[in-house]
Design a protein around this nucleic acid. Structure first.
Lengths: 334, 334
DNA sequence: ATGAAAGCGCTAACAA
DNA sequence: TTGTTAGCGCTTTCAT
């Protein structure tokens, strides 16, 4: 059991080895009689086709490589879970690679991924160099970036509409009456961080306001430090737009427990992602929702499309994100 | 690039195909001259050995299957990340399978895992049936259960010392002066849930106290409902031991925001796991720390040991867990 | 140390 | 529909 070959099944069933193969190959033809005999013999022997051998011939491993940087931001485990489920439903599985977000690290990991003959690659929160893109394209392996955009073509990317999202946040904060607004931005080395900031600044600039900006690097400690810096000023902001929820929680912790300020009375806070924790009573965070389910669907669909038809062009998909009004800002709640 | 074979490298280097194989096979011998020539040719062609082909021959895929139920409890993504890193350092990679914690689901997933010829399996927060254990053993594939114990032998299991942990919690709560204590337990279908409860009840019983117990099923909503039930009584508890942090956060949310009670002044709360969020100011949760790093190390070590030497016996490892005193209980802080 | 040859378990022409 | 025959890209005897 466990190491039964198709040949053994063939002998027991009294058919050829290829007959066995056909019975287990979707879309191959065999007579009802043969199928019956083979299934029976396979059952008795506990036979299951060897995926590795199949993969070597067909060139399809049914494995998708997932490159992910950090799992401490709740958004990514969630995405991973959904991604895994969606892919599993299609008969694919996820080989997980963790990589710090440095070029060298990503490069090495991608190479390993190619070694494993993965059918496709999803990168979550990780940037691609154009060299890497070229390598994957040359190898004929479709890549979809999840929650990161890319300027140069050749890679598919699924994000939410981050520029528009930043604009929404800007307009909302203005509508709440805030004029002294700060932004603890997402990492400026990431497209998401830059886009959100850009949309936000656009709107404020048009209102004649120049927000103070500090790069929070998607890091709790950095965001906490930024909060201290911001609030230690002569005219501290009365609203802070934080580049993602993960940092926003740190900002709220710092504001409330360390500085003794009230949210939203003294300072309003707004995040980005709408991870489950944002809805929990302890934070009740107003935030831009990134619809994980829809982003996952789009990611899987894009990947499968290119798997089915390798000539399908790389796509760039943006999912709209709604503002979720909660208790960390003063406006009307949703 | 990407589909270069060892034969092409051999031709370019002017050596045999097996020479190329030797150069890329750890522990094979080749002259410095050959190595030099082969490496050069491989470099120029962008050759990398095909892991699938190698796997088929050696019978070793260098892939470890990870079965995980839910990723919304912060403890598991963290474990996944560490596990992935540790395994990656040893040249192994993780194929992730998500499975609801039902027997049928786990069964199916395990079978798929075997199809992929994984070298070993780690199950996180998932139970094993003895039938499944037998199947994996028959296939010669070592299984290590992470954060779940198993009575019958044949599988390795790494947990923290949950019975002792429950006892520690019991003693601590008593030492804080609590006498009316409730327990929202971990799922009683899991060994961890049962063990923690058992240790806890042992200690309280010896002190002549019978705690009220409700199964929280490791679920936020269930835990919140349990909290309401508990506090709606005539003599509500002044301390609640919750089966894991994930539920404890829901308990605190319910207590503070919904019921308007203060923690720990009105009710003390203590959790289990010490996920990062437990240390954040918003919760500041007293909890039993499950040392993820040490548990991961033990898991990887156990797995590798059985991979190296298949005759190595299945091991049951318990890691001690310390009590982390924070603000959700009244005693002295750590 | 190296090359030739034999497979690993399977799928995919090709005949029959 | 079925069996026969080649391989997929590699590791591993076995000679040399």
């Amino acid at each position: 059991m466990g190491n039964v070959t198709s040949l053994q099944v063939a002998e027991r069933a009294g058919v050829s080895q290829s007959a066995v193969s056909r019975v287990f190959t979707p879309g191959a033809s065999a007579s009802a009689k043969t199928v019956e005999k083979v299934r029976k013999a396979a059952q008795e022997l506990g036979y299951r086709p060897n995926m590795m051998a199949r993969a070597m011939i067909t060139g399809k491993s049914r494995i998708i490589g997932l490159v992910v940087a950090y799992l401490d931001n709740q958004f990514y485990p969630l995405a991973l879970e959904r991604l895994s489920n969606a892919l599993q439903a299609q008969g694919y599985h996820i080989l997980v690679f963790t990589a710090a977000n440095s070029r060298a690290d990503v490069e090495e990991v991608m190479q390993e991924l190619l070694d494993f003959q993965v059918d496709g690659i999803i990168t979550a929160s990780v940037g691609m160099t154009s060299d890497l893109t070229a390598r994957c394209n040359a190898a004929g392996i479709p890549v979809v970036m999840f929650n990161r955009g890319q300027d140069g073509a050749g890679v598919s990317a699924v994000t939410s509409a981050n520029v528009a999202g930043g604009e929404t946040v800007g307009r909302y904060l203005l509508s709440c009456g805030h004029r002294n607004i700060a932004h603890i931005s997402g990492w400026q080395g990431s497209s998401t961080g830059r886009d959100r900031q850009q949309g936000f600044v656009n709107v404020l600039t048009q209102a004649g306001i120049t927000p103070q900006i500090i790069d929070g690097m998607y890091d709790r400690d950095t965001a906490a430090a930024a909060t201290r810096t911001l609030m230690a000023q002569d005219a501290p902001p009365d609203a802070i737009f934080v580049g993602n929820d993960h940092m926003a929680f740190a900002v709220m912790d710092t504001l409330r427990q360390e500085l003794g300020l009230r949210v939203p009375d003294d300072v309003a806070v707004i995040g980005y992602d709408d991870v489950p924790l944002a809805a929990w009573a302890a934070y009740d965070l107003t935030t831009m929702r990134q619809p994980v389910n829809r982003m996952v669907e789009a990611t899987v669909a894009t990947l499968l499309a290119r798997l089915t038809d390798p000539t399908a062009p790389a796509k760039r998909i943006e999912i709209d994100s709604p503002l979720i009004r909660r208790g960390s800002t003063k406006g009307p709640k949703a």
